[in-house]
Design a protein around this nucleic acid. Structure first.
Length: 521
RNA sequence: GGGCCUCUAGCUCAGUCGGUAGAGCAGCGGACUUUUAAUCCGUAGGUCGUGGGUUCGAGCCCCACGGGGCCCA
């Protein structure tokens, strides 16, 4: 039990002259402190001054917790008003409400999962000095340990009748007002406050963790090994994107933050890691908005002796299992209340066929580029790097993409925009690649991987020419990767999926809600 | 990159025509033994994002910069 205070209750004249008040700090960079913080610092100092052992003070090493708040609620939530359980428990939680009727004080304690329980401190139970200390020292936001009998209050609220209490961790900053919504900016910049204040914020963390655990479980069931490949790379590759550049002092060389793990995972496949995946961060030095973050979590998986069809099957399973883990069924409910069905066999459509159908004109890999350019011109579609395949992809997005409601694999892309993919086994001019669209946005992409080192080299050379012409997203020629391929890579199906986007598809949230700590300036 | 909106107390927000800066919650002092955002009395708290400008006078008008948001490309 803590020692009650022998000092008088604080007055502002006391606290402003207190040695604990850091306005006296010699550090010139010290922020000017607010009145509320000064008051709390003074309380902290009083707690420290009175501490008799490691279990006292403002920051005890430990407190004798016997139950979580949830356990107490589950075991005794049935108590009738004024009924006592006849059981003594010790619980801890953050003070989120304080009420005081004079000789009886109430506090609502909240645990990290959001469950709450009421603590009741009465004059009769703790005595005059201790009640005064409670009123003096306990603030909203403090972590508090209370021990006492479990009972329901007269109004039926499950409570701890406090026999002993102590501060478990003193809060120096006042908690934000929990009755108003936090502003969007505070939510993102101070996520810890968002987590304290908002049930949905806590749920989002659980949902993401559940979804990622489900992905790993699905992979494990199918014999995939998880690996980690370099994030700092001498040469970035595996995707078309602008990289972040950094510098290694030890090697005295510039390094790139990876834009994709692909070229390393394929090296692993060459080495015989036949089923391999990685869930990790990629970095792309591009714009940030409600659907793009400069750093984002990415899943890539490679299945040797598979192809783009088998890896599509796998992708569908991964997502459906994740949906089931998160919401109990293949039908997920989004934050805005709409339901989205991820169940069943997903549609697989051809890019060229669906484009031809939507545009009302036959478009094939053999359609002259002049015709594509004219069509784009008529439709007002701008094509940044006017090669054949880019026209087709931009036109497809223009004509078809927005109309996709159900989960859909869009199959067979132009060859000249997919330099790491092998050509279709029977259709000329396209590659065995699909994009998965869910509610109109791209969630994943899959391939029959290009394993012929000679053709791969040719494709890289073409990319290098694009780079030389100023395409900052074009790929560099990776000699080490080509050498690995030359030792022989088995036929392989590969897949990449944005984890943040998966969460968006499962929950309907914005990307800043799916990422716990989004990058902010 | 372009357009529009926004930045005021710890938090969430008002602030009229350019004329001494407001509320709720939280804080501080007091009352109250069953409250649930308790209630009641009293009280303190501001570099109005930053820097310029216009004006007798700027939270408000003008310019630049910074943060955030929305829409468009």
């Amino acid at each position: 039990m803590r020692e009650p205070s022998s000092r008088s209750l604080p007055h502002m004249s006391d606290t402003t002259s207190s040695p604990a008040t850091p306005t006296a700090s010699a550090d010139p960079t010290e922020q000017e402190i607010t009145e509320q913080k000064a008051v709390r610092l003074a309380k902290r100092q009083r707690l420290l001054d009175e501490a008799t052992d490691a279990a006292g003070g403002a920051y005890p090493v430990s407190v004798p917790v016997t139950h979580t708040i949830r356990q107490v609620r589950e075991a005794y939530g049935h108590l009738a008003p004024d009924e006592s359980a006849g059981v003594t428990v010790g619980v801890a939680g953050r003070v989120v409400h304080l009420r005081n009727t004079g000789k009886l004080c109430f506090a609502s304690l909240q645990s990290g999962d959001g469950t709450r329980i009421q603590a009741m401190v009465s004059l009769a139970a703790v005595g005059e000095e201790d009640l005064a200390a409670w009123k003096d020292l306990v603030d909203l936001g403090d972590h508090l340990f209370v021990s006492g009998e479990v009972a329901a209050s007269r109004r039926g609220e499950l409570s701890i009748m406090v026999a002993e209490w102590r501060i478990a961790s003193k809060a120096i900053q006042p908690l934000p007002n929990l009755h108003n919504e936090l502003s969007e900016e505070t939510r993102v910049r101070s996520r810890y406050l968002d987590l304290i204040a908002r049930e949905q914020a806590r749920r989002n963390v659980v949902t993401r963790s559940t979804a990622v655990a489900s992905l790993r479980a699905t992979f494990a069931e199918r014999g995939f090994l998880e690996v980690e490949t370099p994030m700092l790379q001498v040469m970035h590759g595996g995707a078309s994107a602008r990289p972040f550049v950094t510098h290694s002092n030890a090697f005295d060389t510039d390094l790139y933050l990876r834009i994709a793990p692909e070229l390393y995972l394929k090296r692993a496949v060459v080495g015989g890691i036949d089923r391999v995946f990685e869930i990790n961060r990629n970095f792309r030095n591009e714009g940030a908005d409600s659907t793009h973050s400069p750093e984002f979590a990415m899943l890539e998986a490679y299945e040797s002796y598979g192809d783009y069809s088998s890896i599509a099957d796998l992708t569908q399973t991964l997502i459906q299992e994740a949906a089931k883990a998160v919401s109990g069924s293949h039908v997920v409910t989004w934050a805005d209340g709409t339901e989205y069905d991820l169940g069943g066999e997903w549609d697989r459509i051809s890019m060229f066929e669906s484009l031809s159908q939507a545009a009302g004109v036959e478009i094939t890999p053999q359609t002259p580029i002049e015709e594509l350019a004219a069509l784009a011109e008529r439709e007002g579609v701008e094509v940044p790097h006017p090669i054949h395949g880019k026209y087709v992809e931009e036109l497809w997005e223009h004509f078809v993409k927005g109309g996709l409601e159900r989960p859909t694999f869009v199959m067979d892309f132009p060859v000249d925009t997919s330099p790491l993919v092998r050509e279709h086994r029977s259709i000329a001019g396209v590659v065995e690649k699909w994009d998965l669209y869910i509610r109109g946005f791209e969630l994943a992409t899959g391939y029959s991987e290009l394993v012929d080192p000679v053709i791969q080299r040719e494709r890289f050379v073409e990319q290098a020419k694009l780079a030389a012409r100023g395409d900052v997203e074009a790929m560099r020629l990776d000699e080490e990767f080509l050498r690995a391929l030359e030792f022989g890579m088995p036929p392989t199906g590969g897949m990449g999926m944005g984890i943040d986007r998966l969460l968006m598809a499962l929950t309907g949230l914005g990307i800043r809600e799916t990422i716990l700590f989004p990058l902010v300036k």
